[in-house]
Design a protein around this nucleic acid. Structure first.
Length: 334
DNA sequence: TTGTGTTTTATTGCCTCC
DNA sequence: GGAGGCAATAAAACACAA
């Protein structure tokens, strides 16, 4: 796949398309041949390889007339019919075996290479869309969690105020009634002890949960295939207890992961075909309905950041008992 | 018409797998 | 080592506002 690669001219929709050979040297900005007159011959205006028919003999290449007749062909878009068939094929299976590629190319009047390129680009678009959807879902989950967290803090604050107020009233009453307040004093002490016990238990419980969560995250981060960071979304979304809003039936794609691995759920880039992803799969152009909905993909860094964030947030939430700042690292989302 | 942003097609280089 | 995949990128094609 180096220089001397093929370029396919899709002119002439369907049969009779010309096959071009690129003679560019190296990559973008690579060598450029010029013929008299300063017109780029082997190399487009900006140094890219010029395209000429693939089945051109070396002699032909040396004929100057040839270049006068064979101006570089422009890149052509596929026809709607071709795209439609490719989309349907992608929907069935987003990987392309050689036989299928050849068959598709034959049906569409394209070169196999074009079909392969189309699938490659289509997979890239699919992945981008998935990332966007995953981000939206996680953000929604986070918003719900934060709202829940804020509500709990308020509740906590209100209840504490109530306890303080009632305790004070009891003490006042105790003072008014003198010695008769022994029982009340005992009750007050009980209330305080109970409160303390509840707080300690709660703190211990949450610390344990956080620790477990942390260990899980670290495991994932360190053992993911190829160093991939994988977020255990179940754990992430479940540990906080506030993410019930998340539809657990919606899968996410985290490369290198186990449960949510793209390969598992989407056929190892086999895509939306054999899971419920397929149900919602359409072309991305009609995005409203969510073409590639269902499976998700996160790059390692994102997963790691998300894991760290959620773990940090959970920790913050559970361990810091104050009604604190409530200032979560929002930059994470922006 | 033109400038600008977006989408699509294609290339390159690197990586992994067999 | 070859085949195929992916990320990054270039550039043509297209859409659209001014």
């Amino acid at each position: 796949m180096d220089s001397g690669r093929l370029i396919f001219n899709t002119t002439g929709s369907g049969a009779g398309q010309m096959l071009f050979l690129e003679c560019g040297v190296g990559g973008p900005g690579g060598g450029m041949f010029h013929r008299g007159g300063g017109r780029p011959v082997l190399g487009l205006e900006e140094g890219r390889g010029v395209k000429r028919p693939f089945f051109t003999s070396p002699d032909e290449l040396l004929e100057e007339e040839y270049y006068d007749e064979q101006l570089p062909e422009k890149k052509r878009r596929l026809t709607p019919e071709q795209v439609h068939l490719l989309e349907r094929s992608f929907e069935e299976e987003n990987k392309l075996e050689p036989e299928r590629k050849t068959e598709l190319a034959r049906k569409l009047g394209l070169q196999p290479r074009q079909v392969a390129v189309w699938f490659q680009n289509r997979r890239a678009r699919w992945k981008t869309k998935q990332l966007e959807r995953d981000f939206d879902r996680l953000k929604a989950s986070f918003d719900a969690l934060r709202a829940d967290h804020d509500a709990l803090l308020q509740d906590n604050h209100r209840l504490r105020s109530q306890v303080v107020s009632l305790t004070e009233k009891l003490q006042e009453k105790e003072e008014e009634e003198g010695g008769a307040g022994a029982a009340a004093a005992e009750f007050t002490a009980d209330v305080k002890v109970s409160l303390a016990v509840v707080e300690v238990e709660q703190a211990a419980e949450e610390a344990a949960a956080f620790e477990a969560q942390q260990v899980k995250s670290e495991d994932r981060l360190s053992t993911g295939s190829g160093g991939s960071a994988v977020v255990d979304t179940d754990a992430l979304l479940g540990a906080g207890g506030g993410l019930a809003a998340v539809d657990s039936s919606v899968e996410s794609y985290f490369p290198g992961g186990d449960d949510h691995h793209y390969s598992d759920h989407c056929g190892g880039m086999a895509g939306p075909v054999d899971h419920h992803c397929a149900a919602e799969f359409q072309s991305e152009e009609d995005d409203g309905a969510g073409s590639d909905e269902g499976c998700s993909y996160y790059p390692d860094e994102t997963a790691a950041a998300a894991a760290a964030f959620f773990a940090g947030h959970a920790h913050h939430h559970h361990v810091d008992d104050d009604e604190d700042d409530g200032q979560i690292s929002w930059w994470m989302w922006n």
